[in-house]
Structures are given as C-alpha cells and as structure tokens.
C-alpha cells in the first residue's frame, strides 16, 4: 500500500529524513509517532510529492512514484486519485462555504456534479458540519476547520487516508468522534496512516505504530510487541508491599526501598513468582505486588532519549 525505502531529505543543513524505511500494509491503521521536528510531516509531504527528497524510493498504491531522486508525476497523480490527505496547520479557502469547498475538491477528483453534492452532504453530516453548510469557512472555529479538513480528505472515498496530526485543535468530543471515523475506515477495509505526537490518540485506534526520531524509524510494529520489547530491554518493574521488611541481599535484582516495607524491584524478566517464593521463604507476607507497565509515553520518551 505504502512503502518508503532509504528516503533522504535534507533542508539546507538539517537532515529531516535519514534513510527512512517504512511500510504500511493494506487495511492497517498505522500510527506514525515522533516528537516535534522528528520528520513526520516531511515524510507525509514527501509521500504526496509536496517536498522533493534527495534520495530513496517511494511506492504508493502499487505505483513507484519516486525513484532516483525524481518523482514520476504521472504515477503520482494516478496514486493521488486514491488518496485522501488532511494536512496539519491548514485552513481551506475562506471565501467558500463547506458545501462549495467539498464541491471544489470533488471536482479536482473528477467526481460528477450530482455525486459531489450527495457525497458532500454525507460527509458534512458525518463531521457534524451540515448545520453550517452555508456559512463561510473564514468564520469557522479551529475545530470546525479540522472537521472540514477531514471531510475533504474523504470526498473521493480514498483507499489510503493520510492524516497529519489530525486531532490537534479538537475538543474531547471531537477527538472521540474523530477516532470513531478512523475505526469506521478500518472496518471498511481502508488503510489509514496518521501522524501524531499525542500517544493516547494513537494507542486507541492504531494496530501498528512506527516511531520516528531524527528522521529515522526507531521502532515499528504492534503496540503490545513494542511494549514487550521495551520491557525486555529496560527491565520489568515490580512494586512490592509487605507486612515487614525483607532482606534482598544475595538476589540479582535491582531493589530500591520505597518505604519501610515497600520496594521497587527491577529485573530483566517477569520475576513475580520468584519474588513471591523469595519473600515467603523469609516468612514475610505480601500485602500488594504489581508489575508497573510502561505507558506509551515512557517508551516514547526513552526512545527519544
């Protein structure tokens, strides 16, 4: 569906993409994570031919759109006909109403006039803008603009939906509705590639994530696998509370006292059973024991470091 190989993009003296490799399979909802300035937007802009990478290869919907330092504009246009794109920090033409905007965008895809009208109505209802269909976009709030940007990205019923920080500026209700729309897209068998620096947004809707840092993909895969991999490398953390102090000398675990009878144990694997047996052998009763799972934020921060 989407394949990037060894993509390099340099802006003056900044290497925004540093031999980036990435693949999104059909039907995937791919969360593209990274801190600000990591290269997320540059990747998306490169995919659409909006910026010119210097090296690498891009394949979009089976079309080899970029190779040997140049875009094949014919193939790119062909691929774009099946793509929906929602940019970050963008507005639409302020003198148009939402209906006119969707009509103009639909025209760019060559959708017949009657069908455009029908589709525009459906989409405006979907993003809750039907009531303000005749109001000028210039008078819209940030959230309303975001909704319209999403609607325009869906006008051609795209096979691949590319969203750049789509939930920025939305209120919690808007975010929930937005996530629902992404889930609907997944149900319909569409592929969604979306970038975000807010991990909670990605965690709930994506089945695969990729983390980009300084233009390179640091990690990619299923969220659970990423967490497991992180735990394997960083170690499991167990928080233990007992009825009286425990003597941990002689163990290989890294133990930090958190109170008189409270400890943090870090081990290279899940050692809950071993801890249980060890504590019991000293005649000490366990009051509470829990594995502290790393949040995506922690994993993310660790990777960025």
């Amino acid at each position: 569906m989407l394949r990037i190989e060894n993509l390099v993009k340099v802006y003056k003296d900044v290497r925004a993409l540093d031999r980036l490799n990435l693949e999104v399979k059909p039907g995937q909802v791919y969360g593209f994570l990274g801190p600000n300035g990591a290269g997320k937007s540059t990747t998306i802009l490169s995919l659409l031919g909006l910026v010119f990478p210097q090296e690498g290869r891009i394949e979009l919907l089976g079309e080899e759109v970029f190779q040997n330092g140049r875009f094949d504009e014919g193939k790119l246009v062909k691929a774009k006909a099946r793509i929906g794109y929602m940019p970050e920090h963008a507005t639409l033409w302020e003198f148009l109403t939402p209906m006119q905007t969707l009509d103009v965008i639909g025209e760019a895809f060559g959708i017949p006039k009657t069908e455009r009208g029908k589709r525009a109505k459906e989409l405006l209802q979907l993003v809750n803008l039907w009531e303000v269909r005749d109001k000028k976009v210039g008078k819209f709030s940030k959230g309303m603009r975001q909704r319209l940007l999403l609607a325009q990205a869906l006008i051609n019923d795209p096979d691949l939906l590319i969203l750049d920080e789509p939930m920025t500026g939305l209120d919690p209700k808007g975010i929930a509705e937005f996530k629902e729309i992404i889930r609907e897209q997944r149900k319909a068998g569409k592929t969604v590639f979306f970038s975000s620096h807010i991990l909670a947004h990605v965690e709930e809707v994506c089945d695969t994530v990729g983390v980009i840092v300084k233009g390179k993909l640091r990690v990619e895969g299923n969220l659970d696998n990423i967490k497991r991999e992180f735990l394997r490398k960083a170690g499991y953390t167990i928080v233990l509370e007992t009825n009286k102090p425990v003597d941990f000398s002689g163990t290989e675990w890294n133990v930090t006292p958190l109170g008189e009878a409270k400890y943090r144990i870090v081990a290279p694997k899940d050692v809950r059973e071993e801890v249980h047996d060890f504590v019991a052998s000293q005649g000490v009763k366990i009051l509470a024991m829990q594995v502290k799972e790393p949040s995506l934020e922690e994993i993310f921060l660790k990777m960025v470091e």
């Binding site: 802009l45 659409l48 031919g49 909006l50 504009e73 246009v77 062909k78 774009k80 006909a81 793509i83 794109y85 940019p87 920090h89 963008a90 507005t91 639409l92 033409w93 965008i105 760019a108 895809f109 060559g110 940007l149 325009q152």
Partner: peptide
C-alpha cells in the same frame, strides 16, 4: 502559509 496549496496539490492535479 494558509495550507491551501498543500490541500490543492495533494489532489490528482499536476503542478
């Protein structure tokens, strides 16, 4: 600056 060009050029239109 407004972002309208990115929207326009993401559609199947040659530059």
């Amino acid at each position: 600056e407004k972002g309208t060009l990115r929207v326009a050029m993401s559609k199947p239109i040659k530059r």
